[in-house]
Amino acid sequence: MFKMIGIILILLSGTLAGFHKARQFAARPRQIREMILALQRLETEITYGLTPLPDAMAKMAEQAKEPLRTVWSSASRWMSPLMRLSAQESIQRALNDNWKRTAMRSSEKEILHQLSYTLGTSDRQDQIKHIALAAQQLKHEEASAREDQIKYEKISKSLGLLIGALIVILIF
């Protein structure tokens, strides 16, 4: 009886782990896309709205979905004058604190990390260039993330169940 329950538990957790992995594969390109859209919004805020960076980030947070919302809102909060942090430090802190909650990988983080060095430190035209460059790089990552999704999403689902079954066979 206990054996049965154990087997079911192992199979169940294996399957769930597989589904989780598959969801990550599906979420990554979607979140990268959202990130690109957010950057485009930022570009508009900078060029047409002349919105200061903290306000622009807060606006991006309002319009974004979780988990990106937290990234932007925490960047905006770190930029408050009381914190006395530079824009670069604020963005990097926000990325470091919240990146684990996203499905994105370190390559995307690195792109935003690079962008943080220039954000807010130059005139509009320069800003546009840097944002466009980051968006371009993200698009590249998005394409490879989509490939990964096609390749691995379904496999991970079945793999989870199979690994669960393997463990069961090995144990019993």
Partner: peptide
Amino acid sequence: LDLISNHSLYTME
């Protein structure tokens, strides 16, 4: 520069 421009030099052209 970051402090006096509120992190946004582009607003100060």
